[in-house]
Nucleic acid binder design. Structure first.
Length: 206
DNA sequence: TGCCAGGCCCTCTTTAGGGCCTT
């Protein structure tokens, strides 16, 4: 298992709704694999949830029922994705959402994963307190992160989240003179009370 | 463009309520 904060898989789901407990399913998974901050691989697949998606989801994601009609079923795509994420920790923007869907989809096919999750949104809230809000698109603008203007598609959003993740690491490293950040440092940071963040990071400095 | 849920986080708090963020 990779333990470096710069060696992670950043992932993003598009889904039929907000809650797998209410019957929602994944319709697209996108992810980028990073080793030491360099993108070394990516994953993007549409998947057929077995029922029609709402017109709201078609409009929100640009993923239409026609596109999903010929896509492989969720079980097949998620089995392949379970192989892709082996050995890596995981990052997502509002990770609790993506974790719920990953857990629900993998439970359907009796697959598991060993990596741990952390959340770029929780850390961004602590680090960029002056941002207008902490939506992915807003943070991309606020931090002048390169983007191609595509939002709400899984690979595009995971690529932007990956750039945001590197910006987060770089901001911490330069502001606090920290050389090596581990993934567990970032997990702890995501759970540290805002007021205690500076003292926590100062303790990590050389 | 909205609702559904769930976890986090703030505050006029902790015997609670509501906004944020994800689709």
């Amino acid at each position: 298992m990779q333990t470096n904060a710069e060696s992670v898989i950043v992932l993003d789901f598009e889904t039929t709704g907000l809650s797998p407990n209410m019957g929602d399913r994944a319709i697209e998974i996108g992810a980028v694999k990073m080793d030491n901050g360099v993108v070394v691989d990516h994953f993007q697949k549409l998947m057929n949830p077995g029922f029609r998606v709402s017109s709201f989801i078609e409009g929100y994601t640009g993923i239409t029922n026609n596109m999903l009609r010929t896509a492989a079923p969720c079980d097949e795509v998620m089995d392949e994705f379970a192989d892709f994420i082996q050995g890596y920790n995981l990052v997502a923007h509002n990770a609790s959402f993506d974790q719920r869907f990953l857990d629900a989809e993998l439970a359907q096919i009796n697959r598991d994963y060993q990596g741990k999750f952390t959340c770029s949104m929780l850390i961004a809230r602590r680090l960029f307190q002056d941002a207008p809000n902490h939506k992915l698109g807003t943070l991309v603008d606020y931090l002048n992160i390169d983007n191609d203007g595509v939002f709400h598609r899984a690979l595009a959003d995971s690529e932007m989240t990956a750039k945001l993740w590197l910006e987060i690491l770089s901001t911490i490293q330069s502001n606090y003179q920290i050389n090596a950040l581990s993934f567990s440092h970032m997990q702890k940071l995501a759970k540290t009370a805002k007021a205690s963040v500076p003292s926590y990071l100062k303790k990590l400095a050389i």
